[in-house]
Design a protein around this nucleic acid. Structure first.
Lengths: 233, 233
DNA sequence: CGCCAGGTTGATTTCGCTCAAGCAATGTGG
DNA sequence: CCACATTGCTTGAGCGAAATCAACCTGGCG
């Protein structure tokens, strides 16, 4: 096992990506898989013509591009960098070999996929059950989990790495509805928005509303044990 | 490899379940995984109190109960038999061992999970983009794929294994809307409903509407399918 | 016979989408 | 440096699909 991991360390390459850079494009042939070490990646799919829709977010600990590898198809989504990221690349052949020969690694990876599956089902559920307002809040909370800061003054602040359009897409609503919802949240004294700056004004009540304890999950019940720090349970 | 499979065959047990029987309940501790050999299983989740909602269908070839096993949690959904089924059970310890030591099996299993992931994402997409009518038709078609019969007379017939409530849940709509939709489909001469009997009157046009070829249909397309009509957003 | 769960139907309401206009910030070319 | 276009966001008005509320069937069963 040690030997394999050594060879893995030798064969993998880590690269720094800048914001806006494309890791792989939709329809592109799969060259291998990517493990995100830091940063934030958006998976997008174009629906009609030039329009492109943000589908999912992926962050540290997530592996992306595996679907294309394992189904032997071209990428169905594009991966684009939202905030500067360190991404480790594993070549197609090596990845295949690893899957076929290192069960422990495959098992660990399976956890990752399982997390994505849970996420997808959660999204589905949200869409059927929850109102637009609740979904927006969930998206904001999951973003806060990833990128938020608690200022010494006690304010909970978040710098959005997304346009309104993308944010709306994540919540599964139109940009107009998002805008209205945000204004409503302001009138409810729940949060305030200035450009891409979000400030949560009642985080306690918010977490309460979603029956979450502090710093535990949001929309994304990330079960992959490898994601960053928190969540030991 | 041969040896492992032999021991697998020795350790697994196959059991016949009758309609309505519970394979495992929500919140129950995971005892192992189940492979469906024949029949049909419904995965349900209770949303509030006594109310319980049908989430997914699982049929021959599907493995269920793995999520609880791999995340070391109790079952998040209940599995209930819809039509009499043959189900093969693999004990928790054995399953864990197999995952950890037989990469080929894990890889094969990974494909199964990948399929479920694609299914979940497809469901999500459907819900955002398609109308109630289209979703009902998709559910009916996927059921027809599993249980439908083409009578010698040429009629395409299907005996529903579900209540209206469950059918509506699958399509992500309320029972009332389902009822109205069905009546509308009848007035459109697309299908007719008598109790749990469904009769498709224009299967060709139907498959055409969803850009599907005959007998390769269903809600779950290979993920090249971003189906047909997508509203941009 | 009456009860009851499941199903249908009708009336009303609501939520979010579409269409359309207005506005601020950023480019762009003369 | 200024008119002008472009892009991203917000706001308003109207509309429509589906949810909700509520009454009413229907068939099975004690």
């Amino acid at each position: 096992v040690e030997r394999e991991l050594t060879s893995l360390n030798a064969a993998k390459t880590t690269k720094a990506y800048g914001a806006g850079e494309v890791v792989y494009a939709e329809g592109e042939e799969c060259r291998g898989v990517y493990c995100i070490e830091s940063g934030l990646i958006g998976l997008r799919k174009h629906d009609l013509k030039t329009r492109t829709t943000l589908m999912r977010l992926r962050g540290p600990g997530d592996t992306i591009g595996y679907r294309a590898l394992l189904t032997n198809m071209e990428h169905q989504v594009a991966a684009k960098v939202l905030i500067p990221s360190q991404i480790c690349f594993i070549d197609k052949e090596l990845a295949t070999w690893l899957f076929a020969n290192v069960p422990s690694l495959g098992l660990q990876f399976l956890q990752n996929v399982l997390g994505h599956l849970a996420e997808a089902e959660e999204y589905y559920f949200q869409n059927v059950t929850q109102t637009a307002r609740a979904r927006v809040l969930c998206v904001l909370l999951s973003l806060y989990e990833r990128l938020g800061e608690a200022l010494p003054s006690g304010e909970r602040v978040l710098k959005l790495p997304l346009s309104r359009r993308d944010l709306a897409a994540l919540a599964g609503i139109s940009p107009e509805t998002l805008s209205r919802t945000m204004r409503r949240l302001e009138s409810e004294r729940i949060a305030s928005f200035k450009g891409r700056q979000v400030c949560f004004m009642n985080m306690v009540g918010l977490l309460d509303e979603f029956e979450l304890s502090d710093s535990s999950a949001g929309l994304v019940t990330n079960d992959s044990g490898q994601s960053n720090a928190h969540r030991s349970r």
